[in-house]
Design a binder for these strands. Sequence first.
DNA 1: CTGTTAGCGCTTTCAC
DNA 2: GTGAAAGCGCTAACAG
Lengths: 363, 363
Amino acid sequence: MTGTSFKKPSTRQRWTIYDIAREAGVTAKTVSRVLNAKGGVSQETRDRIQEIIRRVGYHPHIAARSLRGNRNACIGITLSAPMDIIPVSQHFFIWLFEHLYRTFGIRGEYVCFDVNPYFGGSSSGYSRGVLEHLFKACVIAGPLALDDKDIFQIHESGVPYIAMGRLETLPECSCATVDYEEGAYISTCFLLERGHRRIAMLKGFEGFFPSVERSRGYGRALQEAGIEVDEALIRSVDFETRNISNMVHRLLADSRVTALIDCSATEDSSGLREGMRRAGRVPGKDIEVVAWTYSENGAVLSEAAAHVWLPVREVAAEGIEQLAAWTHGKRKGPIRVVYRPVLFTTWANGEVSRPKRLFGSLE
Amino acid sequence: MTGTSFKKPSTRQRWTIYDIAREAGVTAKTVSRVLNAKGGVSQETRDRIQEIIRRVGYHPHIAARSLRGNRNACIGITLSAPMDIIPVSQHFFIWLFEHLYRTFGIRGEYVCFDVNPYFGGSSSGYSRGVLEHLFKACVIAGPLALDDKDIFQIHESGVPYIAMGRLETLPECSCATVDYEEGAYISTCFLLERGHRRIAMLKGFEGFFPSVERSRGYGRALQEAGIEVDEALIRSVDFETRNISNMVHRLLADSRVTALIDCSATEDSSGLREGMRRAGRVPGKDIEVVAWTYSENGAVLSEAAAHVWLPVREVAAEGIEQLAAWTHGKRKGPIRVVYRPVLFTTWANGEVSRPKRLFGSLE
DNA sequence: CTGTTAGCGCTTTCAC
DNA sequence: GTGAAAGCGCTAACAG
């Protein structure tokens, strides 16, 4: 404290806008105008008020502002399901945080995470931050469950938001997503063209929309080829290597199965290899694999016949950009960005390593 | 919406506690009691109110609650300096987030980051989240600047907080830190005992307290050995490999210098090796190195004579644990946890790789 | 067990 | 260019 030092007169510690007003010999409204950089205040008054604010270290009460001004405080990130259920890779998380920093943090926004925890076995719902008027904008990370209801509440609230996936139950949903149906479709078509008739599929995200999209793309490709879908060839897997190798083994026990699509989202080469080995199969010889990857031109399995690249980060970046524009009043919602996956048969970037799960280290 | 469906009568969308009260045929206070799980409401009334709340999807306005109840909304994490100045490693960030999740997120707390951005060249101050009454507790990540003032405001606010370093200007500061002075002291003593008299030091965090602590520990060791400090032997470095190799080269150009302490906090073996090579030195022959590491039993430089382990994550974990206790009223502040660094001359975990900076990938 | 009143700190509306 | 008054949605204190 340099120069004249003021005394907060009331017994409480906190300086209010009224205290500043009193010191400056104006009303609270004038101080409010200065704080919000609005017109209608002479430069002299403005300077005087700012000097007092600086000197006493006054900061407006964000809750009062939020309550009265109807402006929420933070940019929120929520997980569509608790992390125990839906793994988030460390890589994606780091990427997301960095991107939010560039887009929002640098402009002085608070970036607030709601980790959507379980309370005694039941989730409190990931829309909480929006419904409680804490979030001025919301990024929903992770796949949406088939029976998701929170998204409707967020959608209706009018708060700008972006989901990382589409959902049929809310077609006008604001989203930025890769077209997983297309991914499954091109994976299946590729194998059909190479003469395969019984194509197995290892599918992630059971109970979530991405799983349904995969099934649909697969089914559509088969239908166009005049082949009936055999449900036994589609297996849902979780994110355990053990689970993947078991499923691969089981699927390939049927010797008529000559091709496999891995769209488990695990990028787990060791599970695939172990499963094929146990089934006595040799990739490129009696089994052909299409593996999904999240790296451009990076292979999951170098023995694979092809890879399908899901540009998840790329589409998320685009979505967050548009979310920022919406949040700052430069456009209206909803957002709809859908990127197409890309099939490639040669890879320049070698084999990618299996992503580390966030919280994997603590479990 | 199942069963009876209510209509929000006012023109605005939002349901308030009064609307719930009206529907339930009670007053707002009773609803408030139910919301806050307080006594004084019959089970029957409680059930009826909860049913209405559930049905209309009511959520309390967090700002109103915060304003009236004097309870802030989030657990805050602030950076003591903008990330352009102070690098945060991806590893530490992931660790921090995971730990905050375990400690706070799982209990339903919002975890909110203030990235302390520059606005037109000047920082808005990292105490913002506390002073604006958004944070109910605050973790200050990163070293504190010598002229830091924000910490005083946080300290005086009464909000539970923990800084990741000590500072002399505020001895009663709440902190969880490694004793960097001790680290420099034991590093220097080790080399003195091995007969070295001219010991160079590569020092990080110029302008921040950890730098001062390093100098003091170094000076104390020399003083006890009756050797005068030659300031030319102490060099501040930033986090660029190039900068490190240059400094090592320059320091070792003086052939009387026979030992080097790397406490740059970079864990950068390539900078060290390159510098020594350019100076025509061979570690273990005409130069002995003590390197600082943040991994237990992990070496930065396998040619080093010794390593000093700074248990930064370990002390942060302890600090966050105590911060949670303080936040939840189970103890009082301030917190003071200081862990001692450990010198070791053999390493089981091999050589650690240089940490990746958060935002390194986007620069 | 439940209701009434007041007010947290700010911004909006309207008046001067 | 500035001020007065009302009220955002909630909860603490007190009354019944």
